[in-house]
């Protein structure tokens, strides 16, 4: 299909040519790896973000002794598996969810989560499948959890004295890293990768695929 813009002497000023590839279009709309995968990514990521942010808001009431950062782990996963723009958009949205649920002014959590997503993206390296995905997921969760806790204690701890902030470090940092980075994070990564592999029959790639 050709479109052309011509002047008064019938010379083409602008020509546009459209070509449709029926095979590729059929593949895109009717195969699992096509539009359905994009739909799954959008819906699943949004639903998981809502659930994980809600978990992070609600869990301290039922498990005050165990720090669990579900939203941080999910965003570390998204930073390593999805396109950077999409992950950052979800990070801003997740930060708004966390700030609204905690009755805080909007902005600090969004900024913090954007930083975590970018660090997870940098650690992945933006390239193909990794040699040691389990170790990489552990490293990303460790980095995300530590930075989240430290920045929260530094900037978002309200009127706590420095002594009280230091006193919180053993539980929030050490135990938090143990629970989140060593146990929950790799488990979450494996679960989400496995679900994607099960549904779409291919290895979940690194950042840039979505």
């Amino acid at each position: 299909m050709n479109f052309a813009v011509k002047d008064h002497s019938q010379r083409s000023l602008l020509e546009i040519s459209l070509a449709f590839n029926p095979e590729l279009l059929r593949e895109f709309f009717f195969r699992r790896q096509g539009i359905w995968r994009y739909g799954y990514i959008v819906l699943a990521d949004c639903a998981l973000l809502l659930l994980c942010c809600a978990k992070q808001i609600v869990l301290p009431h039922y498990f005050p002794e165990i720090p669990c950062y579900a939203a941080v782990l999910l965003l570390a996963y998204l930073g390593s598996r999805r396109a950077l723009a999409w992950s950052l958009l979800l990070a801003v949205a997740g930060g708004i969810l966390l700030d609204s649920g905690n009755f805080l002014p909007l902005g600090p959590s969004s900024l913090l989560l954007c930083l975590l997503v970018y660090l997870a993206f940098l650690q992945t390296g933006g390239s193909g499948p990794q040699k040691h995905p389990a170790l990489l997921s552990l490293q990303q969760c460790l980095c995300a959890t530590s930075i989240f806790v430290l920045l929260n204690l530094l900037f978002l701890a309200g009127s706590l004295s420095w002594t009280a902030r230091l006193a919180l470090l053993p539980r929030q940092l050490l135990l938090g890293v143990l629970v989140n980075a060593v146990f929950a994070g790799p488990l979450l990564f494996a679960l989400l990768d496995g679900t994607e592999r099960l549904l779409f029959g291919q290895a979940a790639g690194s950042a840039g695929e979505a």
Binding site: L59, H61, L106
Partner: peptide, 23 residues
Amino acid sequence: QERIQGTVRFASEPGKCLAAITA
């Protein structure tokens, strides 16, 4: 900010209920 927070809290109610129940 208050309007955005109110809307977001309303939208996140189902998630918080589910999270509270499971926790």
